[in-house]
Simulated assay, not measured.
Amino acid sequence: MGNLLTDRQFWVKYWESKTGLSVNIPENYLFHKELANIITGQKIKTAIELGGFPGYYAVFLKKYFKLDVTLLDYFVHPPVTNDLLQANQLSEKDIHIIETDLFNYTSAQQYDLVLSCGLIEHFNDTADIINRHINFVKPGGTLFITLPNFRALNGWFQKNFDRENYDKHNIDCMDPKLLESICKQAGLNIVQSRYYGHFSLWLENEQQKSAGVRLLKKSMWLAGKVFTKIFPFNSKQLSPYIILEARKP
């Protein structure tokens, strides 16, 4: 498993450290416009979220678009997912859940929409993990991947104040041109591969950081938000995310 930058114990510890996971997913959830355009434009009926526990996007797609949704991850804690479903007026029957190792799993089904948000950057071999996504996409279907942009100011902040988390990410894969070339080589048509969002900063488990670090983060966040409110643009230097959208012929 040399491809992995994390292991199961990392994710158990990660999710056990979190509180307030069962949130009401809003209609304007992150990337909602992009997903709405795909779903309406491509007449999406089925979707799978890879590596998505506790299933925020699976819930979003079921709640607002009534898709036939599957969640696949190699760590699923059912009480958390069930609480999330209940918080969004959904039941256990509304989402198919597959707990498995993506590297030892062959799906009998392909989907209209295959998405992951914050997954591929935890693997060393970017082409390999993207191609595993592509295996789930049916002909004519859409691949939608998002990941953080740690080559931006947000990455500098992570590197300096949360090095342990930073080191769990493959920084080299945070390149829209690289992602585009991998998909083209796999025979997909690129819809978009670009930096996304004007500015943001975050820290995992922020309340555990020192008061000085929290104050610096708040100050930088405020300054960045004011600047990009006046000069709104997507850029390698400031955008917190990268999005990739591609279609299988």
Rank of each mutant, 00 (worst) to 15 (best):
L84D: 05
N104E: 14
I145D: 03
H133D: 08
T142P: 10
K66F: 13
H77R: 10
Y64H: 11
I98N: 12
Q109R: 14
I95M: 10
S107E: 04
I134P: 06
A108K: 15
I120M: 01
T142W: 07
T146P: 05
A87N: 12
Y105G: 10
L113H: 11
K93G: 07
L113E: 14
H77L: 00
V69P: 04
V114F: 00
A127T: 13
Y64V: 11
K93A: 13
G52A: 07
D125I: 09
L67M: 15
V59I: 08
N88H: 07
N124K: 12
N131A: 04
L90P: 02
L143V: 06
C117E: 06
D94V: 08
L67T: 07
V69K: 04
N88D: 12
I130L: 06
L61I: 08
P79I: 09
G118T: 08
S91W: 09
Y57F: 15
I98S: 09
S107R: 13
V137K: 12
L90A: 11
C117M: 10
L67F: 15
Q110M: 09
V69G: 10
I95Q: 02
K138Q: 12
Y57V: 06
L119I: 11
Y105A: 08
Y64W: 15
F75T: 00
T126A: 04
C117K: 05
Y56G: 11
E99L: 03
D73Y: 00
N88I: 00
L67G: 14
R132S: 12
D83W: 08
L143P: 08
S116D: 00
F65L: 02
K66C: 11
D112M: 07
D125V: 10
H122Q: 02
S107W: 15
T81H: 06
T146V: 03
L113F: 09
H96S: 15
S116A: 09
L90M: 14
P78E: 03
F123V: 02
N124L: 09
Q89F: 15
N131K: 15
I134N: 14
P54E: 00
I120N: 02
E121N: 10
K138Y: 00
D94T: 11
H77F: 13
A127I: 00
V69L: 08
L113T: 12
I120Y: 01
D68G: 05
P54A: 00
K62I: 06
N124T: 08
L67Q: 06
L85G: 12
F103P: 05
L143I: 09
T142L: 03
P79E: 06
I97Q: 13
L71W: 00
A127N: 14
Y105D: 10
E99A: 03
P54D: 05
D125A: 07
E121P: 14
Y56F: 13
F103A: 02
Y56T: 05
F136C: 04
I95N: 01
C117G: 05
Y64P: 15
R132V: 04
K62Q: 12
G55E: 01
L115K: 14
G52H: 07
L113A: 03
D101N: 12
N82V: 12
H96P: 07
Q109I: 06
P139K: 11
K138V: 06
L84K: 08
K138R: 14
L119N: 07
E121T: 02
D128L: 11
